[in-house]
Every structure is written in structure tokens, then in C-alpha cells.
Design a protein around this nucleic acid. Structure first.
Lengths: 210, 210
DNA sequence: TGCGATAGTTGCAGTCACTGCAACTTAGGC
DNA sequence: GCCTAAGTTGCAGTGACTGCAACTATCGCA
């Protein structure tokens, strides 16, 4: 989550009307402007007016797209979340939950990294302003809940069962630190590789390393 | 994390000056006012002016104690964090990291629950306004980092090693959902019991439940 | 005990995030 | 081409938050 897919989706949705396309572009422009201005100056030294100006819409319009300034920079993208859930559903049904989720997250991470522009912007954001990391990769409660629900369905467990909730929160936390590690390591460790390693450790019960 | 210890500490620190004591009380009063007003009306329908009035200080003073309105309600308490780290350091050195951390968290949770006033307020907050839960129990990045550092020291690993970071983030996520579960379950499951169970599952590699 | 240094409180003025509303513009369907 | 619905914009208002400077209360020390 916390990653956009505007670019990825542009070509997949040609049959959409002009309206939809415009909205999508405006949203992407706002996000991009918010992101790059924040990289330059830090979140506190960028105003909504400036972001709106850079995206060539009125400040009022900004708030038609994002509920807050922060959301434009570090917010969740519902489309991206949907993508992750699809990956999860595509995994074979007999795979253990943790394995399926790890694989889905790794695939997802690779796809996100392929959206080059945004990926580099986000990367720069983390390098310049690491204090935003928790919010950027932060466990969105609703994402966790959706993943938990998907896991429960997969495993045929009742909706309120504590197990899928535990797996979802723990797994997303692991993915978060894996991405963090990958960013720290520069190009040495790909996000998906870091995720795979982290999930292997998880499945082993997090034994102390040699 | 995310829990105050003002009440617990009052008597432990008699030798503090008048200044310190006053500050501590003002801080507690502000927190308490913020919390109970928010329980009644929701975060958006409470103003800083009202919180300050309830705590009998000027609105300006509120911001000398908390950086934002939100922080007063769902913010982290550095004292509480220190408490958790102490518990962790008190665990025998030969215990595996996950076991030590789980035990420290369970003890800590019990202590927090013993601070009755605040505990019930927080509990009520979660019941009335569940949307605040992620922020209340949300992984504070700095807490995670501190726990990771403590684990690294315990295990004699270099500061940047990915393993302690992974364990810290995963374990805190597990503790978070455990507390969540306990709140959901009413009095049926104590927070520390939920934590113990969650950590057992973690140590087992999160196998699918029967 | 009194006094200077220091920490904490307050009011004030200002900036900016964010909201509801009503007028306007534009795309979509017929 | 025209009606309708969706989207944009400006405006006015509320309230979060900040820096500053004056004021007050505690503390440490002679």
C-alpha cells in the first residue's frame, strides 16, 4: 500500500471517459507535486497553495482529491491496495497464509518499483526526510483489516478470528521493515528480495541469526 | 508506548522539585482532559481551547506540552517507553529475543492496565472512536527503533543489523493486535494473556490454526 | 533570607490547513 | 443542441499551531 499506480493503470483503462482520465491525471499531478515539493523543502515548508499551483488547479480543488496535505504525500492508494489483494487471491489455495502473503507482497513490491518516476520520488523522500517513513509505510489500519479479511476467507475462518488479524499485522510490519532495509541498502537489496528474506525468518519463528 | 505513567510515577519521585511536580500534573491534567472530552464528542468536536480550559491553563500553554491536539489524545509517553525498555533489559541474557520481548511487553501491559483511570479512559476511547485505534496503538517509529537498538545490544549485533529491526517491528505489531483483540473481547481476555498467545504463535512461525 | 538566574506561563498577532456553500463550467447521454 | 450530473472554483469562516515578548514563579546561592 501507500504506493500509487496511476501510471501503471493509464493504459489499462483506455475505455474510460474523458472525465475519469482527467481526474486521474489531476490526482497524479497533485500527488507528484506534493511529493517533489516535499522532497525539496520538507512537509512543513510546502503549502497546499503551492502544491495546487504546481498541479495547475485551485487550492480548493486540492481538497476535493485529498483530505489533508499529508495524505497527498504519504497517503494510501486504494488502487494499489486492490492490486495487492488480487495478488493474494491468485495464490494457490493450499499455500500457508504466510507464504501466500509473502509472495503477494513481493510481487507487488516489484510492480511498484517498476513505476520508476514515483518510485524514485518516494525513495528520495525517504532519504531526505526519514521522519516521514512511518507515515509513508505506516500500517494503514484499513489495509490491515482488508488483508486480514482476505486471509480469513482464504482459510475459511470466521471474520472475527484473531489469527488472520495477527498474520496480517505482523506480515505487513515485516514487509515495511524489509522495504526500509532495502532503501537503506541502496541498490544492493531489492525490496522483493528483502521481503522474501523477512518472510523466511518469520516462518521460522524469528530465530536468532548466526 | 502510547500509555502514560504519570499516576504510577507520582509516588516514586518524591524528591523532585515543585517545578517538576507541577509540570507533571499539568501534563496529566491536559492528557486526561483531552482524552475524556474526545471520548464524549470525538476528536473533531473538541478544541484545544476547551482542553486547556478543562485543565485550567491557557491555550498557549497546551502547546508547551504537546505538539498537537492529537498528541495529547493518542500520543506516546516517553516515560512509558522507558519502562518497557527497562523490562526488556531485566530479562535474562540467554533468552531468545522474541521470548524476552514478549515477556517484557506482557509485564508492561499489566502495569498499564493497573493505572485504572487512564486505562478505562483509553478503553472508552477505543470503544467510542475505533478509528483512532491505529494512532493510539500505532507503531511509533522511534519506539520501534529504540526496541530494535535494545535487542541489538542484547544480542551483541551491530547497530544496523536487519534482524533486530525486523523482530522489533513484528513484535510490536503482534502486541498491538493482541491489545486490540483484548479490547474487542471485553474482560474475557487480558491484554497480557493475548500478548503471550500472540508471541507463542510468532515463535512457532505462525502456523495455520486448527 | 533575599536576590539574581532560569524555567515556565500567558497573550497577541499572524499563517495556514481545512470546511461548507453557492455560483459556475464542462463532460456525458439523449 | 440540450439537459443533467460531475467537477471546479472563490469566498468566508473556524481553528490548529508558531514566534515573540512580557510576566511570574521556582531555584540555587551568598
Amino acid at each position: 500500500m501507500t504506493v500509487t499506480t496511476e501510471a501503471l493503470r493509464e493504459d489499462a483503462l483506455r475505455e474510460e471517459g474523458l472525465r475519469e482520465r482527467k481526474k486521474r491525471r489531476t490526482r497524479a499531478a497533485l500527488r507528484r507535486a506534493a511529493l517533489s515539493l516535499t522532497v525539496e523543502r520538507g512537509l512543513d515548508h510546502v503549502t497546499v497553495d503551492e502544491i495546487a499551483a504546481a498541479a495547475e488547479v485551485s487550492p480548493r480543488t486540492f481538497f476535493n482529491y485529498f483530505a489533508s496535505k499529508e495524505e497527498a504525500v504519504v497517503g494510501d492508494d486504494p488502487d494499489a491496495r486492490r492490486l495487492l489483494l488480487e495478488h493474494l487471491r491468485e495464490r494457490p489455495a493450499d499455500e500457508p497464509p504466510l507464504v501466500a502473503l509473502g509472495a503477494a507482497l513481493a510481487t507487488y513490491a516489484d510492480e511498484m518499483a517498476a513505476d520508476h518516476d514515483l518510485w524514485t520520488l518516494r525513495r528520495a523522500l525517504l532519504e531526505q526526510h526519514p521522519e516521514l517513513l512511518p507515515r509513508l509505510l505506516g500500517a494503514s489500519a484499513s489495509a490491515e483489516r482488508e488483508v486480514a479479511a482476505a486471509l480469513a476467507e482464504r482459510a475459511g475462518l470466521p471474520a472475527g478470528h484473531p489469527y488472520p488479524a495477527l498474520v496480517a499485522s505482523v506480515a505487513l510490519a515485516a514487509a515495511r521493515t524489509a522495504v526500509h532495509r532495502s532503501v537503506d541498502a541502496g541498490r544492493a537489496v531489492s525490496p522483493s528480495a528483502a521481503i522474501v528474506e523477512a518472510f523466511a525468518a518469520l516462518a521460522d519463528g524469528l530465530p536468532a541469526p548466526a
